[in-house]
Computed example of a mutant assay.
Amino acid sequence: MTVESTAARKTTRRSSGAKRTTSAAGAKKAPAAQGAEPELVQLLTPEGERVQHPDYDIDLSAEELRGLYRDMVLTRRFDAEATSLQRQGELGLWASLLGQEAAQIGSGRALRDDDYVFPTYREHGVAWVRGVDPTNLLGMFRGVNHGGWDPNSNNFHLYTIVIGSQTLHATGYAMGIAKDGADSAVIAYFGDGASSQGDVNEAFTFSAVYNAPVVFFCQNNQWAISEPTEKQTRVPLYQRARGFGFPGVRVDGNDVLACLAVTRSALERARRGEGPTLVEAFTYRMGAHTTSDDPTKYRRDEEREAWEAKDPILRLKAYLEREGHADEAFFEALEAESEALGKRVREGVRTMPDPDDMAIFENVYADGHALVDEERAQFAAYQASFADGEVK
């Protein structure tokens, strides 16, 4: 399965590889205000042409650029394999990130090891760059665990299914590390739909008042399940931050370089004690909300096709080829690595052991509880009745 097979191949490339300065072609300016940001920060056009931005620029080596490309390709491969496994009955559900690779890899690579991540349930790319084994992400969706990794091992919290609640967790954690005197930062991921939740707005209030070192990273993929963004807000999402007293910025969420630069800047601002930032990554959910959703019922094929021309992986590949930063041997080796990852994920999921029937009673209370002990004994007796061949 090639990268190009999941996106349009009709990318029109410009003949010139020279850098130029722009604030994103055709982008509107934010309403006049002190220090207002351009509406869209972009460093790499959909055609794979490198551009400059006066406030957010970044200089990466060829090796670093290849690393970002590798991260996106392997994340997409893992995500495609997980979707196939769900269709084959191996997973109960899956939330695909197809189309959002640049937002996740770019922001994830901006983090330091001592920063802490609070994800939703779709941050597979961020999990990848934090070193979480991909197969561990699938245990919960297979129903064999409640999250298969230790959050403190990678500073990557367990997936959060409740919409928006992790922003409050992130804010509280950020307030705590500030009181401890640490210079690390926190990032909270959520979607455009979650931005309408009370929890998110409460997190904005607390983080602003307490000057918490937190970055709110909103992946605006245009659709909160079946509701378009315009049904939720009268202004661009990043402008909401102004009402809470901290800055917001909109970045091209399909541009991995811009996402890296903007997130890195926001994290550095948090570490300097300057408080929270809202980053709106303007991207698109290429697939369904989850595997139980049918997006053809509420959006047009033409819309998806328009976004396929902005594919985050193809635009970086075009840039790598134009600048001579990667050759055919690199792409072939990556394709082989991608297939090996898919095979490992398939085998890992199908060999996952079923959980211990009694594990549900563990870790309910730190020091045990009489009622839980009684319930454990009752359930053990019930299970034993099947072994005896009779149900009591």
Rank of each mutant, 00 (worst) to 15 (best):
R376N: 14
P228M: 10
E274C: 12
I58A: 01
A333G: 14
E63A: 15
S5P: 04
A288I: 11
A333K: 11
A62R: 02
A32D: 06
F361P: 07
A281G: 14
A8Y: 02
T12N: 03
L320M: 08
K310H: 12
S96T: 15
P213M: 01
A306P: 04
G143R: 14
S207Y: 03
F246R: 03
G147Q: 03
K179L: 10
P295A: 02
V262T: 08
H124W: 02
N154D: 00
R112S: 13
D327R: 09
D59N: 13
A27F: 04
R264Y: 11
K28A: 09
T205K: 01
Y189H: 12
D57H: 10
Q100F: 01
A194S: 10
G181W: 03
D113A: 13
G131H: 08
A366R: 12
D293K: 15
A387E: 15
P276A: 04
N221G: 00
Y116I: 05
W149M: 04
R240I: 07
F361M: 12
N154T: 14
V391C: 14
A25V: 11
R130K: 11
Y238F: 14
Y284V: 14
W128C: 07
F156N: 06
T11C: 11
E268K: 15
A174M: 03
A188C: 08
V364H: 08
E362D: 15
R240K: 10
N254T: 08
E305H: 05
D183K: 15
T277M: 11
N363T: 06
F386R: 10
N145A: 00
F216I: 09
G67Q: 01
I163E: 14
T83Q: 11
P276V: 03
Y159K: 06
D373I: 12
Q378G: 07
T6C: 05
V129Y: 01
A336Y: 10
V256K: 13
A380G: 10
D183T: 14
I360S: 12
D294H: 13
